[in-house]
């Protein structure tokens, strides 16, 4: 495997890993498969061109210097997710997981159509950090600077999150809640705080995906984020529901598998890439029904 391929696989896998982490965090604490996550990503993308709604997009917030812009967009993503939790998911907390999922889907539809009504169906150009496109030579591989930043950013985020989950009180509570929510509540874990915290982190991660996507593609489109959300959802299950590190590993794995299939398949089979990919997912599940990195608590009773 060439070094170039490693970088290509890491770049795609890194995006999926961050998105999968966003899904897994929420699933862990409240068994909710959040189908609105893709729209959280899209909203964070469109936040860059607020307040302009012209056909020719003008960077609004996006024109701010990066040290201000990045935290601001992360805050917007987190705020949106926390708001969604307070307005939609908190009142539904006693509903079944399926009802929760349909609720999240309805939320996604509402957000997407809201963006569509505000911005129209024509994609918009967002020139964010175009200078990051410069290729950099590393040994035999030529990698755009952005790709390196993505990989580094993913690594930093994962490390930071792992540290937070292990060291901080909120992190401890979240891990406890992900293991066994009822038990954790009985032992004094403040459920509202934990759930709001999980949503805030998840929304922040959605914003990270949004920034990476925009920097990579240079466009804002209302349908953005949907495909990534689905892959992330699959990665969460393949990784083992409730296992955060499993979700990250599976996200990386699916991204890498996709890049490898694209590179390895003969030309005629390449349009069927995703069919091979999803076939692989089914196979993995058949051999490891609990996911690759199932947490101890996920074992069924029989």
């Amino acid at each position: 495997m060439s070094l170039q391929l490693v970088f290509d696989a890491l770049a795609l896998g890194g995006i999926y890993a961050v998105a999968a982490l966003g899904i897994a965090l929420i699933f862990g604490v409240m068994r909710l498969v959040n189908f609105a996550h893709g729209q959280f990503i899209a909203c964070a993308v469109f936040a860059l061109i607020v307040p302009s709604t012209d056909a020719l997009a003008v960077l609004g917030l996006g024109a701010l210097p990066a040290p201000v812009l990045v935290p601001l967009i992360l805050l917007i993503g987190a705020g949106l997710a926390v708001l969604a939790e307070a307005l939609v998911f908190r009142p539904m907390r006693n509903a079944s997981p399926v009802a929760l999922m349909v609720g999240s889907f309805a939320l996604g539809v509402a957000l997407q159509n809201l963006l569509l009504a505000l911005y129209g169906g024509r994609p918009k150009a967002v020139s964010l950090w175009a200078e990051l496109g410069q290729p950099v030579q590393i040994a035999s591989a030529s990698v755009p600077l952005l790709q390196l930043i993505v990989i580094a950013a993913v690594a930093v985020i994962l490390a930071g999150l792992a540290l937070m989950l292990r060291k901080s009180r909120l992190g401890l509570e979240m891990r406890a809640a992900a293991e066994d929510f009822t038990m954790a509540r009985m032992l004094g874990v403040r459920s509202n705080r934990v759930i709001s915290g999980a949503f805030a982190l998840s929304g922040g991660l959605a914003a990270v995906v949004a920034l990476v996507l925009v920097a990579q593609t240079g466009v804002a489109d209302v349908r953005m984020g949907g495909q990534i959300m689905l892959v992330a959802f699959i990665a969460t299950v393949v990784g083992g529901m409730g296992s955060l590190s499993g979700a990250v590993a599976a996200g990386l794995g699916i991204g890498a598998a996709s890049a490898l299939l694209q590179a390895g398949l003969p030309a005629d089979a390449r349009p069927f890439r995703d069919a091979f990919l999803y076939g692989g997912v089914i196979l993995v599940l058949l051999f490891r029904p609990q996911g690759l990195f199932a947490p101890v608590g996920a074992k069924p009773r029989v």
Binding site: L230, F233, I234, V237, V238, Y278, G279, V281, I282, L285, L286, P289, Q290, G291
Partner: peptide, 8 residues
């Protein structure tokens, strides 16, 4: 897991 497999 079955749900995800049906999705795949």
């Amino acid at each position: 897991a079955a749900s995800i497999a049906t999705f795949a």
